Amino acid sequence: MNKKIVFALIIMGLLAVSAVSAQNSLFFGNNNDDSMYQVSLMQAFMHGEYNGVVTVGDLKSHGDIGLGTFEGVNGEMIILDGVIYQAAADGSINVMSDNEKIPFATITKFDEDGKIDDITAKDFNDLTSQLDKEIEKYGTNNMYVIKIKGDFKNITVRSVEKQEEPYKEFTEVAAVDQKVFNHTDQTGTLVAVYFPEYMNELNMHGWHLHFLSDDKTVGGHVLGLNDFKGSGQIDEIHEFNMILPTDDSFKNMNFTEDMSNKISSVE
Rank of each mutant, 00 (worst) to 15 (best):
residue 19 A to T: 12
residue 99 N to P: 09
residue 122 K to Q: 13
residue 11 I to L: 11
residue 56 V to K: 00
residue 158 R to T: 04
residue 108 T to C: 14
residue 101 K to A: 05
residue 99 N to F: 11
residue 91 G to C: 04
residue 184 T to C: 07
residue 139 G to S: 07
residue 5 I to L: 15
residue 10 I to P: 06
residue 245 P to D: 00
residue 207 W to K: 02
residue 80 L to V: 09
residue 177 D to I: 14
residue 73 V to A: 06
residue 108 T to A: 15
residue 254 N to K: 09
residue 100 E to D: 09
residue 5 I to D: 10
residue 9 L to H: 11
residue 117 D to A: 09
residue 32 N to P: 14
residue 206 G to F: 04
residue 211 F to Y: 08
residue 193 V to A: 10
residue 185 D to I: 07
residue 74 N to T: 04
residue 168 K to Y: 07
residue 47 H to R: 13
residue 33 D to Y: 12
residue 186 Q to S: 13
residue 103 P to T: 03
residue 201 E to K: 15
residue 256 T to P: 05
residue 184 T to A: 12
residue 241 N to I: 10
residue 80 L to A: 07
residue 136 E to D: 15
residue 135 I to A: 02
residue 89 A to R: 02
residue 215 D to N: 14
residue 9 L to K: 14
residue 247 D to P: 07
residue 22 A to E: 08
residue 123 D to L: 08
residue 35 S to H: 11
residue 80 L to W: 06
residue 226 N to K: 15
residue 236 E to Y: 11
residue 167 Y to V: 06
residue 182 N to S: 14
residue 166 P to R: 02
residue 100 E to T: 10
residue 131 L to F: 05
residue 204 M to W: 06
residue 49 E to S: 10
residue 84 I to T: 07
residue 42 M to R: 04
residue 147 K to D: 03
residue 203 N to L: 06
residue 124 F to Q: 01
residue 234 I to A: 03
residue 107 I to N: 01
residue 130 Q to L: 11
residue 3 K to N: 12
residue 131 L to M: 11
residue 127 L to I: 03
residue 187 T to K: 15
residue 17 V to T: 11
residue 91 G to T: 08
residue 71 E to K: 07
residue 265 S to H: 00
residue 211 F to H: 06
residue 49 E to P: 08
residue 136 E to V: 11
residue 17 V to K: 07
residue 88 A to V: 08
residue 35 S to M: 14
residue 101 K to G: 03
residue 110 F to V: 06
residue 88 A to G: 10
residue 179 K to F: 10
residue 125 N to C: 04
residue 169 E to V: 09
residue 225 L to H: 03
residue 263 I to C: 00
residue 33 D to E: 14
residue 245 P to L: 00
residue 40 S to V: 05
residue 120 T to R: 12
residue 12 M to C: 15
residue 124 F to L: 09
residue 114 G to V: 01
residue 30 N to I: 08
residue 57 G to K: 03
residue 224 G to V: 03
residue 51 N to H: 10
residue 99 N to A: 09
residue 3 K to F: 14
residue 24 N to C: 10
residue 192 A to K: 01
residue 119 I to Q: 05
residue 32 N to D: 14
residue 1 M to W: 10
residue 193 V to K: 03
residue 82 G to P: 05
residue 101 K to D: 05
residue 129 S to R: 11
residue 210 H to C: 12
residue 159 S to Q: 01
residue 173 V to R: 00
residue 152 F to R: 01
residue 113 D to A: 11
residue 152 F to Q: 02
residue 240 F to T: 03
residue 143 M to P: 06
residue 197 E to S: 12
residue 154 N to Y: 09
residue 208 H to R: 12
residue 138 Y to F: 12
residue 119 I to P: 02
residue 217 T to N: 13
residue 142 N to W: 10
residue 17 V to L: 13
